Simulated assay, not measured.
Amino acid sequence: MQLDKFAKTAVQDIVGGAFNWRLWSWLGWKDTRLRYRRTLIGPFWQTLSMAIFVGALGFLYSNFWNMEVSVFIPYLTAGMTAWILINTIVTESTAIFVASTPFIMQKGMPYSTFVYQVIHRNVVVFFHNLIVFVLVMVVFGVYPTVSLLFLIPSLALFMLNALWVALLVGTLCTRFRDFGNLIVSILQIIFFITPVFWIPEQAGSRKVLFVDPNPFYHFIELIRAPLLGHPPTMMNWAVTIGTLVVGSCLTLIIFGRFRSRIPYWI
């Protein structure tokens, strides 16, 4: 069947890219170093920026939501750490193939190599940002529990989802350049309707509209819940695994179908 052929092409590229781990890990580190070249603290500028944001927003919104600062700021910090990881991967995926044009023009290069590069680079920044959460834990006396171990399968599931998202977004945005601007605009809206700096219960009866079916909320909870000392819920697991299955099937078809056209689109 034609669909089987497309899926096979996509799988071969994804597997080939995974075996290129020396290249994409080196490129990821190189990107990080070049981005912060000639700066004093390098990638920790983003960490400092997040710390300032969390500090300012935390003390302000804790009063708005009538929550204890010691409860709200750890919640906000964990949520922002997860959101920054999601936002940057999706945003950078919009230009993932265009930015890698010189490499793509070399025949035989698996295109997924550049997806792994983006994911690797942002996971490194994620662990830098975790420093802010550790400091918040120390300041407010939030201690890790055994539930922190759930962060390992949570990150693994997150990165599998990030793989298909980046491939799909990268393919579509290479063909239709306006999609990139549209996705960035949509992400700005999603940030405010997703419980990043507000708790789900505050949505009241609208929780079934803005929280329960919102995959971004469940991806955030995969990371935030273990950091705050409790495991993700069964709904968090179900939605993210379901998203992985549906999204992966769709991506295998679309990426496999149009992979050969990417060099012409860029």
Results as ranks from 00 to 15, higher is better:
residue 3 L to W: 03
residue 4 D to G: 05
residue 5 K to N: 07
residue 5 K to G: 02
residue 10 A to S: 00
residue 14 I to M: 10
residue 15 V to M: 02
residue 20 N to K: 12
residue 22 R to L: 15
residue 24 W to I: 15
residue 26 W to Y: 10
residue 26 W to S: 12
residue 31 D to A: 03
residue 31 D to V: 02
residue 32 T to N: 11
residue 38 R to Q: 10
residue 61 Y to E: 05
residue 62 S to R: 10
residue 64 F to L: 11
residue 65 W to P: 06
residue 71 V to D: 11
residue 72 F to R: 08
residue 72 F to G: 13
residue 82 A to S: 12
residue 84 I to P: 00
residue 87 N to C: 02
residue 90 V to A: 15
residue 94 T to C: 07
residue 97 F to Y: 13
residue 98 V to T: 15
residue 109 M to V: 13
residue 109 M to C: 02
residue 110 P to T: 12
residue 120 H to C: 11
residue 122 N to S: 10
residue 126 F to Q: 01
residue 128 H to E: 03
residue 131 I to Y: 02
residue 132 V to T: 09
residue 137 M to P: 01
residue 138 V to A: 14
residue 141 G to E: 14
residue 142 V to Q: 14
residue 145 T to R: 15
residue 146 V to Q: 12
residue 149 L to N: 08
residue 153 P to T: 10
residue 154 S to M: 05
residue 157 L to Y: 02
residue 159 M to I: 08
residue 160 L to I: 12
residue 161 N to M: 13
residue 162 A to S: 12
residue 163 L to I: 14
residue 167 L to Q: 05
residue 169 V to A: 02
residue 172 L to V: 14
residue 176 F to W: 10
residue 176 F to T: 06
residue 179 F to D: 06
residue 182 L to S: 13
residue 182 L to Y: 09
residue 184 V to W: 03
residue 197 F to M: 15
residue 198 W to S: 01
residue 200 P to M: 08
residue 200 P to S: 07
residue 204 G to H: 02
residue 205 S to Q: 13
residue 212 D to I: 15
residue 215 P to C: 14
residue 215 P to V: 06
residue 217 Y to L: 09
residue 218 H to P: 07
residue 221 E to Q: 09
residue 226 P to K: 13
residue 227 L to W: 11
residue 229 G to P: 11
residue 230 H to T: 11
residue 230 H to G: 01
residue 233 T to K: 05
residue 234 M to N: 07
residue 238 A to C: 01
residue 246 V to P: 07
residue 248 S to C: 00
residue 249 C to K: 05
residue 249 C to W: 10
residue 250 L to E: 10
residue 252 L to F: 08
residue 252 L to N: 03
residue 254 I to H: 00
residue 261 R to K: 11
